[in-house]
């Protein structure tokens, strides 16, 4: 229980350990703690931000999807319209073409008929002369009776 130099010695040790602790122990530990705290809070903030971003992205995706759907519907409608139009046009063209063909055919038929008539006309004289020759038993001079024959042919 004597007070002696031990007191001084302990004070020196005390100062030495406190200085050591202050220089080499406390700062790295506390800075590590603070850094980790910052890291964690940053991480939490980042997670928060990410979830918000995700929400935004989802909303954007939905919007885009909706827009795309609308666009697609519009396109389909347009396409339908166009196809109807094309069909109508085609129908019209076909009708016109048919009519044209009919007209052309009719014209051709008419032409043919006329041609045949013409031919017939030409031949009627010959046939009539031949018939008359047979009836009369002699030849008939076509030139002499041409007026008559022409009259006959015109009657056909």
């Amino acid at each position: 229980m004597n007070i002696n130099y031990t007191l001084i010695g302990q004070m020196i040790f005390f100062a030495a350990f406190v200085l050591f602790c202050m220089k080499y122990v406390w700062p790295p530990l506390v800075s590590a703690l603070a850094e980790r705290e910052k890291k964690i809070s940053d991480g939490l903030a980042a997670a928060d931000r990410a979830s918000k971003d995700l929400e935004l992205a989802q909303k954007k995706a939905m919007d885009e999807l909706r827009e795309a759907k609308a666009q697609a519907a519009e396109l389909i409608e347009q396409a339908n319209k166009r196809s109807n139009q094309i069909v109508d046009e085609a129908k019209e063209v076909a009708t016109q073409e048919g009519e044209r063909l009919i007209v052309a055919a009719k014209a051709e038929i008419e032409q043919e008929k006329n041609r045949v008539k013409e031919e017939l006309r030409a031949e009627v004289a010959v046939i009539a002369i031949a018939g008359a020759e047979k009836i009369l038993g002699s030849s008939i001079d076509a030139n002499k009776h041409s007026e008559l024959l022409d009259k006959l042919a015109a009657e056909i």
Binding site: N2, I3, N4, Y5, T6, G9, Q10, F13, A16, F17, F20, C21, Y24, V25
Partner: peptide, 22 residues
């Protein structure tokens, strides 16, 4: 010995424990 003395055991254990802490 009065004041002119050291408690060798106290100082040694105290120093040793301080070193363990550090």
């Amino acid at each position: 010995m009065g004041f002119n003395a050291f408690h060798v055991d106290s100082l040694a254990w105290s120093f040793g424990l301080g070193v363990i802490f550090c």
